[in-house]
Amino acid sequence: MDILVCMKQVPDTETKIVINPEGTGIVTDGIKYVMNPYDEFAVEEALKIKEKMGGTVTIVSMGPQRATEAIRTALAMGADKGVHLCDDAFEGADSYSTAKALAAAIKPLSYDIILGGKQAVDHDNAQVYAALAELLDISHVSIVTQLDVAEDGKSAVAQREVEGGAREVIEVSLPAFIACQKGLNEPRYASLPGIMKAKKKPIDVIDLAKSGLSADEVGEKGAKLKIRKFFLPPEREAGKILEGEPEELATQLVKLLREEAKAI
């Protein structure tokens, strides 16, 4: 099986997000970046498929120079090689122009299945994989919590989470894109020998020229969406503490709920 994993490097989930003064993005100084947590499920599942059926696991990621660290983490977990779409032209992409660049990098590769997280925890759009599957003309199955690849590698049975805790079981012909959800597996830790080997594994860097795309198809120029503004929710105001006898308190409370909070 030739297994691809689409992976994104995102700010650590414990990062305290600060919006820049212009409101055009977040302050990136001092942020620790990690592999998107949902992509960890994808890497783990890819490694499990490889362990069972043989083959190779290739990590495909788009991002600035620093994204190499996240690719190396996946290589340390046991993936075989990386493909890194890295060019200033790719910056500022939306889901569509990201999918476009990923598709360009993936098209020349041989693949039987593509895995990725169900969404990246930074922008939370959950759209890249659907657009990518469309551009590659393959099926996609979203929010997958169980996956069984058929022995011949031609199809897979995936379980999806649907409303009310129910499960939907889908059989899909391969290649397909599988969007991984928490619960699918427990991602392994990179091992020390794995980390030592990772630095020798190849990462193919694809810039704009190598991608075969033009500058206006990718990044901010190729985006269908333009982000106008970022803002944080207002800070919660301090609560009110009422004082007095119970009867008085009840009267005051009803008054406030009616007149100020307009809740009753």
């Binding site: 983490t73 830790y189 990179a190």
Partner: peptide
Amino acid sequence: DEERMVRDTVRGF
């Protein structure tokens, strides 16, 4: 990079 990755991995564990 390797030393930091080991440190971060063990820290996560």
